[in-house]
Amino acid sequence: MKNKKGLIAIIIILIISCSIINSSHKEKQFNNYMSQVDKLISEKKYDEAKKQLDSAKNIKDNDEVKEKQKIIKFNQDQFKIYTEGLDLIKKEDFDSALKKLSEIDEKAEDIKENADEKIVICKQKLIPIKINEAKKFLDSKEFDKAYSKINEAVSIDDKNKQVLDFKNSINTKKTAYEEEQKQIAIAKKEEEDRIKKEKAREDEIAKQEQVKEEQETQQVLSNNISDETHVYWTPKGKSYHSSPGCPTLSRSKTIYEGSIQESGKFDPCDRCM
């Protein structure tokens, strides 16, 4: 009976020992997997890291595993943005590359560090491009577009001396151009006023000449009419007429006739004389 109890005790001890050994072995395996996960993450081998993490998860699915899953997913997303940025650089689309690389979160330290290096390259490429674009607009006097391009360069590097000097150049040339246009407008207005005055003077001269011509014509007519010429007139009218059928006499009830001297009028009718 004592031997049976001793045997049972030994078996229990062996079972417990095996369990402890097995547990210790699994813990060691788990830790090894997790170490590999950290190493692979640092090497940006995220798919391999996920496989190692799945192996660790099969041993023990705890908060540490869940946290590593989040880290891998976060870094995968950030690395994807980084590779998209690199592809844009290869295509020489530096504007888009700069925007894309700037999206990377600072928490992804290694990726962010690499991205910052590429951002510097993008800026170095973009500055002369923006200045050349601004120069083309400046040469064609499209100042607003020139400002737009140079302000893009300022947003890229607001300490760049070449950019700031060129922006000052735009300011100077725009001011000079506006002053030139102002003087042109003044000269144009002065010329328009001169032409108006000249035309008014010519119209006045023409008017005076017309009046003079009419007066001379009237004088000629008057000279050709003697005081004894037979004419017609009305009591209140100021003119004498050559015919009682003159349209201006059509409404008159009383019409006299006789010589000019008898009429007492000195103004021949403009219609009939």
Rank of each mutant, 00 (worst) to 15 (best):
I12Q: 04
I12V: 11
I12T: 01
I13Y: 06
I13W: 04
I13H: 04
I13D: 10
L14D: 04
L14I: 12
L14M: 10
I15W: 00
I16L: 15
I16Q: 12
I16D: 07
I16P: 01
I16W: 12
I16A: 15
I16R: 14
S17H: 00
S17Y: 00
S17M: 00
C18A: 08
C18G: 15
C18D: 05
S19P: 02
S19L: 15
S19W: 05
S19I: 04
S19N: 14
S19G: 15
S19H: 06
S19C: 14
S19F: 11
I20A: 15
I20M: 14
I20W: 12
I21A: 07
I21D: 13
I21F: 01
I21K: 04
N22G: 06
N22A: 04
S23V: 03
S23C: 04
S24L: 15
S24T: 09
S24I: 09
H25F: 01
H25S: 06
H25W: 09
K26S: 09
K26G: 03
K26V: 00
K26Q: 10
K26T: 06
E27R: 03
E27N: 14
E27H: 10
E27K: 14
E27L: 08
K28R: 05
K28P: 04
K28S: 05
K28V: 02
K28G: 02
K28D: 02
Q29F: 12
Q29A: 14
F30Y: 15
F30L: 13
F30Q: 12
N31W: 04
N31D: 13
N31P: 01
N32G: 13
N32E: 11
N32A: 05
N32H: 06
Y33K: 00
Y33D: 14
Y33Q: 05
Y33E: 14
Y33F: 05
Y33M: 03
Y33R: 02
Y33L: 02
M34N: 15
M34D: 12
M34R: 10
S35Q: 06
S35W: 06
S35G: 14
S35E: 10
Q36N: 13
Q36Y: 07
Q36A: 09
Q36E: 13
V37L: 01
V37R: 00
V37S: 04
V37C: 08
K39V: 07
K39E: 10
K39R: 05
K39L: 09
K39Y: 03
L40C: 11
L40H: 01
L40M: 15
I41Y: 02
I41N: 03
I41H: 03
S42K: 12
S42F: 00
S42P: 02
E43S: 14
E43Y: 11
E43P: 05
